[in-house]
Simulated assay, not measured.
Amino acid sequence: MTLRVTFLGTSGAVPTTERSPSSVFVRREGDSLLFDAGEGTQRQMMRFGVGFDVSDIFVTHAHGDHVLGLPGLVQTWDFNGRDDPLTIHCPQGTASNLDDLVHAVGSTPSFPVHLNEVSAGDVAVEREEYEIRAFEVQHRTRAVGYVLDEFDRKGRFDREHAEELGVPVGPKFSTLHEGEPVELEDGTVVEPEQVVGDPRPGRTVVYTGDTRPVDATVEAAEDADLLIHDATFSDDMTDRARTTGHSTAGEAGEIADWADVRRLALTHISSRYAGDVGMLKDQAESVFSGETFVAHDGYELDVPFPE
């Protein structure tokens, strides 16, 4: 079951020739989800071939480097005759600003655009197999992060044991796997727990947007498979990070360590590190022993199920 993350934009507030402003694309089976839409997001979507069938956009905050891609993206969908509705999720108090961006070219899109304001703890989207909820972050404006959290999967079905118990191959297998008992021809009742293992955890991806290191991220990212965290500055610029509402690479590593995540992606990289991001990775790894990488535009990874 696909859960693929593609980094479309990984720069800080100022883009470089190698990095575009913030945007992360997630494909979860048939669902296409976009987290932030900095300037040029639509071109990055074309460049990296992720497709345009986005149903929901999750905006962390209304700073330009996270939202200025919205007008062009909406206009392109309009030109292409989109009919499907689009929902833009955003922090409380920012919907009117984003609505202005949607209508920035002076016309109303031909497809429905819904603005959904969320606060920390709100479930923005709930599907059959997963939900996306907002959590608290700390930036210089109204901001939230987002958690994509898959629900537990069914336990493994032990076909061999089911056959040993006399369950005939066929529909009764499915009935048991769905959690319902079955009765055999001799009157014996086989219960689901006899042939179905414990529920298996799904996957969790956490995206902070711009933030200082905060306890709420640790809570949201506990045991996550992937944490995408603000790492705008190197550790020698802690004061600058604090003043601007960002994190250093080492601080991102500390959050990942405390949350015991499996993989840490450092993003929102300041243009001052255009020549060398190796130090950022080193600083995060000095406090976090899990897999760490500095994301770059076009970086794509499939998130596996936990063992």
Results as ranks from 00 to 15, higher is better:
251 E>M: 03
252 A>S: 15
234 S>N: 09
54 V>D: 08
20 S>P: 00
173 F>P: 04
117 E>L: 00
91 P>E: 01
154 K>V: 12
10 T>G: 11
21 P>F: 03
283 Q>D: 11
9 G>Q: 09
191 E>K: 12
268 H>I: 13
214 V>D: 02
298 G>V: 07
211 T>G: 05
85 P>I: 06
177 H>V: 02
129 E>Y: 09
184 L>Y: 10
222 E>K: 13
137 V>A: 02
31 D>R: 13
231 A>Y: 08
211 T>V: 03
26 V>Y: 05
195 V>A: 01
263 R>G: 05
199 P>S: 00
64 G>I: 06
90 C>K: 01
304 P>A: 05
77 W>E: 10
3 L>D: 01
169 V>W: 02
93 G>D: 06
187 G>Q: 07
158 D>M: 06
44 Q>P: 02
8 L>D: 07
49 G>T: 00
292 T>S: 11
207 Y>L: 15
68 L>M: 09
184 L>K: 05
280 L>G: 02
218 V>F: 05
146 Y>S: 01
268 H>Q: 10
168 P>N: 12
110 S>Q: 09
252 A>G: 12
181 P>S: 10
116 N>M: 07
202 G>F: 09
130 Y>C: 06
79 F>Q: 13
181 P>L: 09
267 T>C: 10
172 K>Y: 08
205 V>P: 06
169 V>F: 14
99 D>Q: 14
201 P>N: 03
257 D>W: 02
163 E>D: 03
68 L>C: 07
149 D>T: 04
100 D>I: 02
250 G>C: 08
101 L>T: 08
281 K>S: 12
290 G>Y: 01
296 H>P: 00
176 L>V: 08
225 D>V: 04
102 V>F: 11
299 Y>N: 06
187 G>A: 11
33 L>K: 10
232 T>P: 03
144 V>P: 09
239 D>P: 00
272 R>C: 07
5 V>C: 06
253 G>W: 09
150 E>I: 09
258 W>L: 15
139 H>N: 04
28 R>Y: 14
21 P>D: 03
206 V>L: 02
144 V>T: 12
211 T>M: 05
132 I>Y: 03
83 D>Y: 04
20 S>L: 05
62 A>Y: 01
93 G>L: 09
54 V>Y: 08
222 E>N: 12
179 G>F: 04
60 T>W: 01
100 D>F: 03
14 V>W: 10
214 V>T: 14
